[in-house]
């Protein structure tokens, strides 16, 4: 904050008017968000301090016991590890692929393909699960294709092998969402004036150089959005895991969300489940803020 010159009443009045207008811009959104989402979330934080089965009218307040317990809960840490592995790989692969696809499909002739690439994100989890279980089945499409081209040695038990299952789910996740990442990158790419691109190519700048120094800095906002969205989306992943493996085999694909679900509803430990959810929220929050700080600093200011 710089030192401010003393304000006259008039200037002060203008300031208040500005704040009032700004508030009017924000207010409708803030009200709906606060009432229908923020308030319920915050009020359920209390449940994480209780021992509660999710039903009984009587809640037993136990302070931070749930969190203390969490610390030594090896199943929680396993779910934690799986979740972050999943999120990290999905974020990296989905963004790399989305960017490559966007660069490749930026030409207008591929317009039809872009819509094709947006079909997978439209599929509900029931359809996605059905299709991909057929893909991954021991005698499913992928193994049949591998056998067909003479790579029988590479056939795998894609969902049944605990060492592979998580990666299979990552692949399905990327299959579903890469098109979405592509669209966001395309929006970024198309905001780059053709003039700049042309000027650079006439100057004889190579494709990689052009990408590195001209394209990438300008699509940095799109990059930020994509990274944040894919990271948060995959940290919160539930549907894909639930419909494909339910966290199995064993706990090989157990994520934080499936663990929360299992604790709260299967084991009737709603208080503890909420504590896991709160811990998860805190971790994602810190992580995202750090990431956002770092990413936005690299963006070209408008």
């Amino acid at each position: 904050m710089q030192a401010k010159p003393p304000r006259s009443f008039l200037a002060n009045n203008a300031r208040w008017r500005r704040i009032f207008t700004d508030t009017m811009f924000v207010l409708p959104a803030a009200l709906i968000f606060a009432l229908f989402f923020a308030y319920p979330v915050i009020s359920s934080f209390y449940l994480s301090l209780t021992k509660w089965d999710g039903l009984n009218p009587e809640l037993k307040f136990i302070g931070l016991d749930n969190f203390v317990r969490l610390w030594t809960d090896k199943h929680f840490w396993l779910a934690f590890k799986n979740t972050f592995k999943y999120a990290f790989l999905v974020t990296v692969i989905q963004n790399a692929l989305g960017l490559i696809l966007a660069l490749a499909a930026s030409n207008k002739v591929f317009r039809g393909f872009r819509v094709l690439f947006l079909i997978p994100p439209l599929l509900s989890s029931i359809a996605l699960g059905t299709i991909w279980k057929y893909m991954y089945a021991p005698k499913g499409i992928i193994n049949s294709l591998l056998t067909g081209i003479g790579l029988e040695a590479y056939t795998q038990n894609w969902l049944g092998d605990p060492k592979l299952a998580l990666y299979s789910l990552i692949a399905t996740n990327v299959w579903k969402w890469a098109g979405m990442a592509m669209i966001i990158y395309l929006a970024g790419l198309q905001s780059i004036p053709d003039v700049i691109q042309e000027a650079a190519s006439i100057d004889g700048v190579g494709a990689w150089q052009r990408f590195r120094h001209i394209t990438f800095p300008l699509i940095a906002p799109a990059f930020t959005i994509n990274v944040v969205l894919s990271m948060i989306g995959s940290l919160k992943v539930f549907d894909i895991i639930y419909i494909m493996t339910q966290g199995g085999p064993g706990r090989a694909t157990e994520s934080l969300t499936t663990y929360i679900f299992g604790r709260a509803f299967d084991a009737n430990k709603f208080g503890y489940g909420t504590a896991v959810a709160v811990a998860m929220f805190a971790v994602i929050l810190v992580l995202s803020l750090v990431q956002l700080r770092y990413l936005t600093r690299r963006e070209v200011q408008g």
Partner: peptide, 17 residues
């Protein structure tokens, strides 16, 4: 009691794996 079945299901898969 609640929660034992889930552990058994995961356990059997892990034993087979």
């Amino acid at each position: 009691p609640a929660g034992v079945q889930g552990v058994m299901l995961e356990g059997i898969q892990s034993v087979f794996a």
